[in-house]
Write a protein that binds this DNA or RNA. Structure first.
Lengths: 212, 212, 212, 212
DNA sequence: GATGAATGAGCCTTCATTCAT
DNA sequence: AATGAATGAAGGCTCATTCAT
């Protein structure tokens, strides 16, 4: 959706632009984000932005897309999933995910904002897509659970999904805030704390949606 | 925080003004909300808004406060709580809450947006206050549960709270969307559906945080 | 020019209104003066101002007129003038004039602003009137001087007038500033200082426009 | 203090902009000056003004500064001063100064307004600077006079300065008005008249502050 | 006559977008 | 393609003046 001019750019400049945009949108929201600030931070002329994208909105949508794709790629790479149990999932890659928080706090924060609907209808399409993918993934986890007999059978998938999402999102947010609180520089102590949080969460998930 | 001019207004006009404001803020977000539109909808001159409030921001904050107080009052009236069990809580007043959704969809939607952080830092103060009150309330419920022996003892309050909030918020949101989907006009069938949703949620809560 | 409503007011209220107006105009200038502030300071309703005067401009003009008349009355009372010499004039009433500064700093300051043209074309008419009266007066002083043979004969009245005005205005302004600098509360020391200033001025006037 | 965008403009546009600003400020005063009018007169878009200056105030202050600097440059060029006598000073460059009046009536009028305090506190800083420079200059003239023995010794510099300023400002203003009265188009007759005025002024100055 | 709420024209300022180089 | 100056629509806010009680 960006103009061809953008695609022809060398990767460094492309990334500079998109990261500057994400930073601005994340920090100020769509309305308050200023194209000029983005251009300045990307070390690019204001006019250039309009050679890359039709307008502010398109730049925003692309920022969203880019961010989501960034995570997709990582998830694809990291997660064989196969027939992993719902409850194992979180611990399995927790270290890697913490590292990600540390390395890409901006992208993580931005994607959280997208997901929680902070950008309203603008990111709707992307949000929907994101949700769909996440959901698909989670349903697969649930299905795995069912197959292994670790998930209660008296509730339908949809209800279990709500439960699963509610719990995991809440704990995710909590972790996000913790990470921000120590400025994206976790100590070993922090890691343990967060792992503990995850374990508790899993225990609650397991009891809640497990076969009693 | 509104000016004295506002406080002296007759109740009808006062309500017209903030409801117009809430509607505009809810529909368009803070930045895109136009004072002129608010004035027009409240059938008041643009300048009058500035006789009532210092500026757009103050009007917004007051809208938030007003909405939250509106719900506080209702909750205060409706909820003896006393030593109600965590799990009973939701069913106890569910009909009344559905009615509220039906009667004040705007306020409910607005407060959800506030709560989910859609207005960012602007509503932060109010959100914090709201969260604090809600949390206090929920902790009391948890305490009640502990006293009655219906809550597991291996997890601390904070963890249980996260779990509780995660689950209930998710189901609340789901209900909100359902209600919107049938245009705030539930049939008996809808009621049953939503009550079923609640029951399932309670079952999950109970299993998850209950004494195994 | 004020409406009849104003004239019917009791003297106290009239004066409160007009002094509040003068204070506001003096402090902020015509454009920045706010009717509301004037009303508030006069302890009168905003709407009342418009029952007394057609509009802001009229209130301003009346403020000017009122101030000038205030001084006229005093001058009329104080100054027999008769055939006082140009050079004696200043010393003759200096104490009284200092007292005036002390008692009515606001009016003095306002009239200075009027005279120096700070209000532009708005006060023009009044300024002209004021100038005319002052000029007449000064010309009489010069004529007195001529009669007594204490004024040089090689220059015409108009030139002498310019000289006289230039010098006296400058010293007046200097005195005004001095008075302001000690907050309108002169000590005996201050009096002496100012009398000294006057004496020097007279000496310069005398030499400058005196006979050889 | 203007933005870099302004400084990069070609000289013609730069000058068009401030001259338009000066004209508007001079004619209407700060409060009544309209940015739109300035832009229109400068044949520039309204928004452009804000690319050049932060706000109206900054534009005004720059207008003042620009004007004063304009005159400084001329004075610097024209006036060796060296050890010119107080009394010679005025006649020495009078023709040039008349020409200036003729060529730059706007700037002259504007600077007079600045000097006489018509813009109040807004131009204060500039006025102070201007006064300081003028004063320094005048004190030098007085010192020259003292050295040559053409200035009376019984009065201190400060008093003489007041006298000198009072007289010269008054005559300057008179000349300004004369010039305006014949629409900045002096005839030979006018020149003679004004030179006469100056000569009389000098005579008064000389007698007044001279060694009797 | 007094009051103070209501009104809306008017102006400054912002900033996405376009344009000329 | 890159740059940054130019543009003008849009909207917040002020405040003199009017109006209803």
């Amino acid at each position: 959706m960006p103009k061809r001019t953008f695609n022809r750019l060398d990767d460094d400049k492309k990334e500079r632009v998109i990261r500057a945009a994400i930073e601005e949108f994340q920090a100020r929201g769509f309305e308050n984000a200023k194209i000029e600030a983005i251009a300045r931070n990307a070390e690019v002329a204001k006019g250039s932005i309009y050679q890359y994208f039709d307008d502010k909105k398109e730049l925003f949508i692309y920022s969203v897309t880019w961010t989501l794709e960034y995570f997709m790629k990582i998830i694809d790479r990291q997660t064989p999933l196969q027939d992993m149990d719902v409850y194992d999932y979180f611990l399995s890659g927790s270290r890697e995910r913490f590292e990600l928080l540390k390395q890409e706090p901006l992208l993580v924060a931005f994607s959280m904002d997208i997901y929680t609907g902070k950008f309203g209808s603008l990111a709707l399409e992307a949000t929907r897509e994101l949700s769909r993918i996440g959901e698909e993934y989670e349903l697969k986890l649930i299905a795995n659970g069912r197959r292994k007999g670790t998930v209660r059978e008296d509730l339908d998938d949809k209800t279990l999904l709500l439960f699963f999402q509610g719990v995991t999102e809440k704990f995710d947010t909590e972790i996000m805030e913790k990470v921000k609180s120590f400025d994206y520089n976790p100590t070993e102590e922090h890691y343990r704390e967060m792992e503990n949080l995850l374990k508790n969460m899993i225990s609650l998930l397991k009891q809640g949606m497990g076969r009693n």
